[in-house]
Write a protein that binds this DNA or RNA. Structure first.
Length: 482
RNA sequence: GGCCCCGUCGUCUAGCGGCCUAGGACGCUGCCCUCUCAAGGCAGUAGCGCCGGUUCAAAUCCGGUCGGGGCUACCA
């Protein structure tokens, strides 16, 4: 049987890094076994689900390149893949479960359940609701006629236990005494997650359910429903949760968790995938940088780490820098150009694009986040109007600065050919003839042309800027020195 | 409280009884390279939570303990 896995986020929040990792693991697993990766929307929480979140999830799944072969928007044999469109089906299952005695109507109130729990605690017995309040058949019909809306609960067989072999945790056993008679259909006639998710997994022929560890203790419930439906259970695999630097479950208070924030900050999807895959999984001996295709060929769902992993943005940034450096110049220009144009508020001319391309290798090497590009490239397209205060006082207000700038103008003007090597040679001999150190002699020029003491390499920058522009900038700085 | 999961450098991890005086990566420190900043090269820093047990031999197996996490909703 071919592998069918699903990623089924609830649109109750933006796609966050933890969910993205779960999606990635499912994706890699499906691809590895040439199976089907399905994207579903578990939107049974009507109060918290929004279309905005749904759009965000879809958008960022696509951004990561985790394409699904079946599911939301792309369709398939199972409708819209939104649970909110399948309520009739869940109802039918719930009713048949009641008919078969696997489930029953319940009027138990929150207060009663709370009292049960308190008593259990006092007696030292399991606090999981055991269905002792189950009403008689006659009472059910009478109260329903009175307009009392019951919930439907699953009748967990006790004594008993559910055992399963978890893909990452091996043998698991849950005593049913610890599993409550959980609600499968709410009093407002909507299904709960346990029901909807399980019915979908059964109906869609899901073979492997790979999800977060937060669902581990709910798994017996899902297996119970599955088997009550007369279906074959899937293989379950529970991934450890992602943590913040303080060891607590990763959440907003740890900073950005939404994928959109990382995208906007200038992370590359390839870097994101590579990093996320390493959280709980290792591609092999001593390897860190691995392309997605490579990971897919090695990821078979075994040897997934059981311990929780701390999400470390610093390492992600390093990795992103590596991926940026590995981009071709063309690819780099393609992503850099719109960012620069947005920063400039205008489109780049054709020759400006070539300037950017010429300096691409130098800029790539200095970029960890795409969002840093405009700051680095701006001087190529607009002359500095102001200069960094500290830079000015440190390198311009020195006795050497006017000497260096004046001499630079002279040698550059008389250059026979305009190449990096020629500029390099000319400027270095200028240093020598004036008895200047590289620091004292070059930094004023850098500040004059870039406005800052930090910039891409000087000679390349000058070459790209061209003689006229370079002289203009140096002269302007000189005039401010007087 | 109950049930469940987890415990190797600060962080991500390799390790699956002898190959471990525990390997790699990020970070950090130093040095080299160098026109700034980077990148790169080299070196260094730092870990098997603890206590018992099994064994000729334990990071690796077992028990306990401590610590962290999850679930305990008509959320998912």
């Amino acid at each position: 049987m071919s592998v069918r896995v699903r990623f089924a986020p609830s649109p109750t929040g933006y796609l966050h890094v933890g969910a993205a990792r779960t999606a990635l693991f499912n994706f890699m697993f499906a691809k590895h076994f040439a199976g089907t990766f399905i994207l579903r929307s578990d939107d049974t929480d009507e109060a918290r689900s929004t279309e905005e979140f749904q759009v965000d999830i879809l958008e960022h799944m696509r951004w990561l390149g985790l394409d699904w072969g079946e599911g939301l928007e792309v369709g398939g044999p199972h409708g819209t893949y939104r649970q909110s469109d399948r309520y009739e089906r869940y109802w039918a299952v719930a009713l048949s479960l009641v008919d078969s005695g696997h489930a029953y109507y319940s009027f138990a109130t929150a207060d009663q359940l709370e009292a049960f729990k308190q008593e259990a605690r006092a007696n030292g017995t399991s606090p999981a609701y055991d269905g002792t309040l189950e009403p008689e058949r006659a009472e059910v019909s009478r109260r329903m006629l009175d307009g009392d809306g019951p919930v439907i609960r699953f009748r967990v067989p006790r004594p008993g236990s559910t055992e399963f072999t978890d893909l990452v945790r091996d043998e698991m056993v849950f005593d049913h005494v610890q599993v409550d008679d959980f609600v499968i259909m709410r009093s407002n006639n909507t299904p709960t997650y346990h029901l909807a998710s399980t019915v979908d997994d059964v109906d869609f022929g899901i073979t492997h359910v790979i999800r977060g560890e937060d669902l581990l203790s709910s798994t017996p419930k899902h297996i119970l429903i599955t088997e009550a439906m007369g279906a074959e259970r899937a293989t379950y695999g529970h991934l450890s949760l992602l943590m913040g630097p303080d060891g607590k479950k990763l959440s907003k208070r740890h900073g950005d968790t939404a994928l959109s924030a990382y995208r906007e900050a200038g992370f590359l999807p390839d870097a994101m995938n590579n990093y996320l895959a390493l959280l709980g999984w290792s591609p092999g001996e001593d390897e860190t940088l691995v392309a997605l295709d490579d990971m897919i060929s090695r990821f078979d769902g075994t040897s997934i780490s059981r311990n929780p992993a701390v999400f470390d943005p610093v390492k992600l940034e390093w990795m992103n820098g590596v991926y940026i450096r590995e981009m071709s110049d063309d690819a780099f220009v393609a992503v850099a150009r719109p960012l620069i144009e947005a920063d400039l508020g205008r489109e780049l001319e054709v020759d400006e694009v070539s300037d950017l391309a010429a300096l691409a290798p130098a800029i790539k090497e200095r970029t960890k986040l795409l969002a840093e590009i405009p700051d680095q490239a701006r001087f190529l397209f607009v002359a500095p109007e102001t200069y960094d205060d500290k830079a000015w006082s440190k390198v311009m207000e020195t006795p050497e600065a006017p000497v260096a700038l004046g001499a630079a103008v002279e040698v550059l003007e008389s250059l026979a050919e305009w190449t990096t090597t020629a500029i390099d040679g000319a400027l270095r001999s200028m240093l020598e003839t004036n008895g200047l150190s590289a620091g004292k002699g070059f930094q004023p020029i850098r500040v004059a042309i870039s406005g800052s003491t930090v910039s891409p390499p000087l000679f390349e920058s000058i070459e790209v800027l061209g003689l006229d522009e370079t002289l203009k900038r140096i002269e302007r700085a000189r005039s401010l020195l007087l």
